[in-house]
Simulated assay, not measured.
Amino acid sequence: MTNLQFDRHRRLRNSANMRALVRETHLNVEDLIYPIFVLEEKGQKNEVPSMPGIYQFSIDRLHEEMDEVVKLGIRSVLLFGVPNHKDEVGSEAYNDEGIIQQATRFIKENYPEIIVVADTCLCEYTDHGHCGVIHNHYVDNDESLPLLVQTAVSQAKAGADIIAPSNMMDGFVTAIREGLDQAGFENIPVMSYAIKYASAFYGPFRDAAGSTPQFGDRKTYQMDPANRLEAQREAESDVMEGADFLIVKPAMTYLDIVREVRDRFNVPVVAYNVSGEYSMVKAAAQNSWIDEKQIVLEKLTSMKRAGADLIITYAAKDVAKWIQE
């Protein structure tokens, strides 16, 4: 066999330290953004049945979650509100005393170094569960934009560090950017859900946020999972309109999109490891079918390898613990 000529790639794999020395992709706690669901009721910590380990917190108990977040070194959280009152125009979303606004003020007062990312949408606040104003069972794009601007400005006034509009309305980035600038928040960045597919992976989130549409679906404003070129058009529009970050959602089944966005655009790319991706792994782990730690770390590393700079993930606390180990 000594006459054969071939490369010996295994030389760089023959010990743990050697593999660590040449490792190309690294997952860090600083890469993680942890989503939190906040309730208006008092004294509440309610586990989401379809998302083991994820809870809805009332503000008077939010310190329990935030203390752990800080202890684990997680630096950024993404807030979703679960309001008591819903109406056809989602007015609680832009109420200065709304649940997200209250939670933001609480975090910034008690944990000032934490980056608060505010989800900017109407679906959690509308009685129909859609992301905008409805006319004849259709979401009116242009009539929804002013309400989204009001929401973004209200969240910025409460202290949000980043505005993250997730509604997928055409023109939402330029409308929000202009609204923030006119309100004196020109230094608040916009983390756009630039590429958000009409995915079947969102079910557990809708349980947690109470945002399941009461009729129809969101396919007229979220993207067709079959489309790749459309994703580039969406991202290009958002960059031109002033987006500071680009989110690709979901992440796991759209890594090709993450890579193309990373290659084309010179802004931070965020992969959203969504609720269905999280819950599938949790369910399999609870049945002892998989090694949860290894699966999650491999999955999130693949997102970094594909080009994501940041990852929104419900597994952030678990991952932080494993990285510290």
Score class of each variant (00 low, 15 high):
residue 98 G to V: 02
residue 82 V to T: 09
residue 131 C to M: 03
residue 80 F to M: 09
residue 159 G to A: 04
residue 154 S to Q: 11
residue 130 H to C: 12
residue 79 L to T: 14
residue 96 D to W: 04
residue 150 Q to G: 08
residue 167 N to A: 15
residue 101 Q to N: 12
residue 132 G to R: 01
residue 152 A to N: 11
residue 101 Q to T: 07
residue 113 E to A: 15
residue 161 D to S: 13
residue 110 N to Y: 04
residue 151 T to S: 14
residue 114 I to W: 09
residue 122 L to D: 08
residue 161 D to Y: 05
residue 152 A to Q: 06
residue 109 E to S: 14
residue 119 D to S: 08
residue 110 N to G: 07
residue 148 L to F: 03
residue 127 D to Q: 13
residue 110 N to M: 10
residue 78 L to E: 05
residue 103 A to M: 08
residue 126 T to M: 01
residue 92 E to F: 00
residue 125 Y to I: 06
residue 125 Y to K: 05
residue 108 K to C: 09
residue 86 K to C: 10
residue 154 S to Y: 14
residue 111 Y to L: 15
residue 146 P to K: 01
residue 144 S to N: 11
residue 137 H to C: 09
residue 146 P to Y: 03
residue 81 G to K: 00
residue 120 T to Y: 04
residue 128 H to A: 10
residue 135 H to F: 12
residue 134 I to H: 08
residue 116 V to T: 06
residue 165 P to E: 00
residue 79 L to P: 08
residue 159 G to S: 07
residue 81 G to L: 03
residue 162 I to F: 06
residue 90 G to I: 00
residue 100 I to C: 14
residue 78 L to T: 07
residue 95 N to M: 14
residue 142 D to R: 10
residue 98 G to D: 11
residue 83 P to V: 04
residue 84 N to Y: 14
residue 98 G to A: 03
residue 81 G to V: 05
residue 167 N to W: 03
residue 167 N to E: 14
residue 84 N to I: 15
residue 163 I to R: 03
residue 165 P to L: 01
residue 116 V to C: 04
residue 165 P to D: 01
residue 106 F to G: 10
residue 169 M to C: 10
residue 151 T to G: 07
residue 163 I to W: 05
residue 156 A to R: 04
